[in-house]
């Protein structure tokens, strides 16, 4: 059954359905509904929701809960995610599966609360200190947001890495019909023999990101990067729309992806052969499919609510085989389909 649901609330409900039983967060617009939803609904399923004293505390509470073997979520918006970065680096180092939702707003600094995509670098290139990556999933509809939250818990557990949902204020605040996936039965959540459950009948478990011996630590990180390579091989997700005969492919993610879908439809109506390539996993970035596409598409127009961040990954993927112009907006301004279509028309003619 479809229900009309706000993006933030759909993501929160999806987390509960994914078996998330602890949530730690701190108020920041435009994602407060996640914290509020969890406060209202987690206790009913035997879970715990704590409004933490800071983002720093919240992410470290997640660290504890994940170490205890329980599925756990935190959410915030850009400035709050910056504060969480210390903890996120520790999660990556200690191999803890935590799902982090970033409902992006415009920055840098306090910026404003309007939708933006300026945290792409932070999300996909590490963000915190050290050699690590996050699985980064970018939903473009409320439906997809719910589904990707559930997937994020699954992937985080499977690979023992933190995973991030990179949404924005538009997606968090909008309501859209959504068909919520059914709850995951507890027995389908994989056991975690490494978790801190009390050293009963087994040697003690230690959750740590600490190793003073460079050679031993190198081996640990090599193991981590083996996992990352496996993720890069097996978990790349993207969507192509009308790319078959396209003379220009728009590359956009998240809410810009859905707006660009409208652009494609309008362009096609005008006889312009335009397609859309929408990365769903921002890390791992779908470089290979984009590279394949670049063998026959002459122009890739990247559209972002930023000064051009994903654009760098697009250019690395296309690697000079096609033109790679950029169109972006800053400060929380969202371009209209008309504006993007006008940009498209600089490169293709009907």
């Amino acid at each position: 059954m479809k229900v009309l649901m706000r993006g933030n609330e759909a993501m929160a409900e999806a987390a509960i359905r994914a078996g998330c039983r602890t949530y730690f967060g701190y108020p920041i617009t435009p994602q407060n509904e996640i914290l509020e939803y969890m406060a209202a609904h987690l206790p009913a399923v035997g879970g715990a929701c704590v409004q933490a004293e800071s983002e720093v505390a919240a992410i470290n509470m997640c660290y504890g809960a994940a170490a205890a073997g329980v599925r756990t979520l935190t959410s915030s918006s850009s400035p709050g995610i910056s504060l969480k970065m210390e903890g996120i680096s520790y999660l990556a180092g200690a191999r803890l599966p935590v799902v982090i939702i970033n409902v992006m707003r415009a920055g840098p600094g306090l910026g404003n609360i309007a939708p933006a995509q300026g945290d792409y670098f932070q999300a996909t290139k590490g963000g915190g200190h050290g050699d690590y990556r996050l699985i980064v999933l970018a939903p473009s509809t409320v439906q997809e947001a719910a589904e990707l939250v559930m997937l994020a818990f699954e992937l985080a557990d499977r690979y023992r890495v933190p995973a991030m949902i990179l949404a924005d204020g538009m997606l968090g605040q909008m309501m859209e019909p959504v068909e919520l996936p059914p709850p995951i039965p507890p027995e389908r959540i994989p056991p975690k023999p490494w978790a801190l459950t009390g050293a009963k009948g087994r040697p003690p478990n230690v959750v740590s990101s600490f190793d003073l011996d460079p050679h031993r630590f190198r081996e640990i990180l090599r193991g981590l990067w083996d996992v990352y390579r496996q993720i890069q091989r097996d978990e790349v997700r993207w969507e192509e729309y009308q790319t078959e005969d396209a003379e220009l492919v728009l590359v956009a993610y998240g809410t810009m992806g859905r707006i660009c879908r409208t652009v494609v439809r309008r362009a096609r109506r005008e006889g312009l052969r335009v397609g859309l390539f929408r990365p769903i996993t921002l890390w791992p970035f779908p470089s290979e499919p984009l590279r394949r596409l670049s063998a026959r598409v002459p122009v890739f127009l990247t559209v972002e609510l930023s000064a051009g961040q994903m654009w760098e990954d697009v250019r690395l993927s296309v690697d000079g085989r096609a033109q790679t112009p950029f169109y972006g907006e800053l400060g929380g301004v969202v371009p209209t389909p008309e504006e993007i279509l006008n940009e498209v028309k600089k490169y293709v003619r009907g």
């Binding site: 538009m170 859209e176 809410t255 859905r258 879908r261 409208t262 969202v334 209209t336 389909p337």
Partner: peptide, 10 residues
């Protein structure tokens, strides 16, 4: 009558 692109309307 088709999936909505932008929820923002100018």
């Amino acid at each position: 009558d088709e999936p909505v692109g932008s929820p923002i309307v100018d």
